[in-house]
Amino acid sequence: MSEPGGDAAVTEVQRPRRVRPSYTPYLLLLPGLAWLVVFFVVPTLSLASQSLQTGNVETGYTLTWHFQTYVDALSHFWPHFARSIIFAGIATLLTLLLAYPLSYFIAQKVGRWKNFLLVLVIAPFFTSFLIRTLAWQTILTDNGPVVALARSTHLTDLLQWVQLTNNDSLMNSRFAVICGLTYNFLPFMILPLYANLERLDHSLIEAAGDLYATPIKTFWKVTWPLSLPGVVGGTLLTFIPAAGDFINSRLLGNTQTVMIGQVIDSEFLRVQDYSTAAAVSFVLMAIIVVIVAFYVRRAGTEELV
């Protein structure tokens, strides 16, 4: 793909006096555009069309503009939508709470250990998502040390009281699903936060201290507002995939923790109701777009990015 661009550049050098529009930038855009058209625009349109078709797998589908599918999907699955948003929201908040101090520490405090610690953050990516989630089954298993500790500290009672678990185990519960989501998406929060906090000008922290701000005030008045672009980036990278996730809820949850990703999965592959599956996918996409648009506006970080 780089060949045509290179040739164009050579011809321009040979005839320097003729001013003509350069097509090179457009040529360079082409592969990306083609990729997006083939793997995003076309599937999206086909999914949109599918959601408005009626029929079944045996006899085939015809486009009948059947909007009732959306109404049915929403009335059937609204609890799953709500649950997905809530679980993803809690997991995003937890990743932020875990990742912020860690990123700050790596970016500002450790000096030459920086790269080593970053490798440790990324290291889990060397195993598959599925394996990492399955590992949580072992961690939270009933006769494991984690559960024993949780029982002896009455953490299990507390979790049961706030309805994150149903009994005195930890597996197959809302708690386990949220743990899985938090763990799996943690690096997506750490990396943007790190990239942001690494650029934080230390003289601004010193200036705040020089201007009578205590360390806590300095954090809330200087560090935090300046890190908002990283926070917004990290929360988006965490929330969006977490809201559509179906592995964690299937491997770590129970029948009351089914998330919308799981619904789409089963509608497509088990029930084979393609129209409903397509409609649910579309509604999920719309909900996420609305939430993200609202969130980015509220954060008001355009000037800082």
Binding site: S203, L204, E206, A207, A208, D210, V222, L226, E303, L304
Partner: peptide
């Protein structure tokens, strides 16, 4: 202090 790079808060 007036810092060498001024250190004004950009936000």
């Amino acid at each position: 202090t007036v810092f060498q790079n001024y250190a004004l808060f950009p936000h």
